[in-house]
Amino acid sequence: MYPQNFYFTKDHEWVAVDGDTATIGISDFAQKQLGDVVFVEQPEIGKVLAVHQTIGSIESVKAVSEVFAPVSGEVTAINAELGTAPEAVNQDPHGKGWIIRLKMANQADLGALMKAADYEKYLEGLTH
């Protein structure tokens, strides 16, 4: 169920890489934990993020979850649609629910992340 070509973090962010562009969102598991998303706080374009720096936060009615940068780089785009339709994070977490795009500063950052199969194993460990 988790896209094979994505990378994942233990905090449940995903990264999809295209050249030096990284698209970042939260995993299906994370959106289910949060419940109905009502607001997504996003950074300004041009902001430079280090690994594990806060990108922003995602809010449901009764919870807030911070989103951390899985890789370092400069923010090149934010998903403006989430401003009016934050529910995309619930409906299509790995697609239309993407949060930001980064121009990656260091490809090596990806080395610390999990591939889909490992992430699924990691999730099994959490739920049992």
Partner: peptide
């Protein structure tokens, strides 16, 4: 029951 999600969105 009231729709709290809609109220916050």
């Amino acid at each position: 029951r009231l729709d709290e999600t809609a109220a916050a969105r």
